[in-house]
Design a protein around this nucleic acid. Structure first.
Lengths: 124, 124
DNA sequence: CACTAATATTAGCGTACTCTAATATAGGGG
DNA sequence: CCCCTATATTAGAGTACGCTAATATTAGTG
């Protein structure tokens, strides 16, 4: 895609420059990157983050109908939120009669722990 | 608007119901919740997450100009990304001449560690 | 077998997000 | 002093997001 369009005389950086502006790399594959972002984007939303916190507090998991009043959004929105958290690997679920019980995965648990342990209180 | 138009005898849930649909609560204040979401939403984006990973790999921090080619977005976008990560408490920064060097905070470091340690590989 | 409750799915609307391009600020160097 | 590099800021455009409302599906219950 035609990088370096101009001719050779354009001095983008003199040879005597400091160590700045070299190459930078990280060790993640595209799949790992995508998985991480899916996870983070899933919790980076008020409704979903609160849902995750509520489920983490419940002993044996929680069903959608428990969360609906606390979250203050419609039933459809709760269902969408839980599905997305599940797809992101943050919730496990089991069917029991006409209810579906959600519980947090180890990944979610550790994520919440880190947030609790590193939260800055003069932050605002 | 006109919820429950019918009379009061409507049995919304029989008395013998299981423990479902009670109250749910979590122990976070509004400020803590907002801070967490600001943090999570900041990393839940490809450009910013990759920037954070790149900076975490660099030994003594990285400046914006190092990241720009790797991130593949404009200079303005890089600056916006770094500012937002900084505001979210995930980056520290120091001025050095005409450069500004960014490094990850403990909060960011631990967040990345958890993602590495709990990432599922059959996830797709 | 209706009836009801819990959940899932879909369309559509309003908003927030993220980029580019342009411009402004700040700090060296010839 | 002018120029060049690194960074910050802003407006605007295109897109993605998150909700509601409506409807479909699934599973108990009288």
């Amino acid at each position: 895609m035609a990088e370096q369009i101009s001719d050779g005389d354009a001095p983008r950086s003199s040879p005597g420059r400091p160590s700045c502006c070299g190459e930078a790399e990280h060790p993640l594959t595209d799949r790992e990157l995508a998985a991480d972002i899916r996870t983070l984007a899933a919790v980076g939303n008020e409704t979903r983050y609160e849902a995750l916190r509520l489920i983490a507090e419940a002993e044996d998991g929680a069903c959608g109908c428990e969360l609906e009043p606390a979250l203050g959004v419609s039933q459809g929105a709760v269902s969408q939120a839980l599905s997305r958290l599940y797809a992101a690997g943050l919730l496990a679920r089991r069917k029991d009669g006409r209810w579906r019980y959600y519980s947090v995965t180890p990944r979610a648990e550790r994520l919440l722990d880190v947030l609790d342990e590193t939260r800055s209180h003069d932050d605002d």
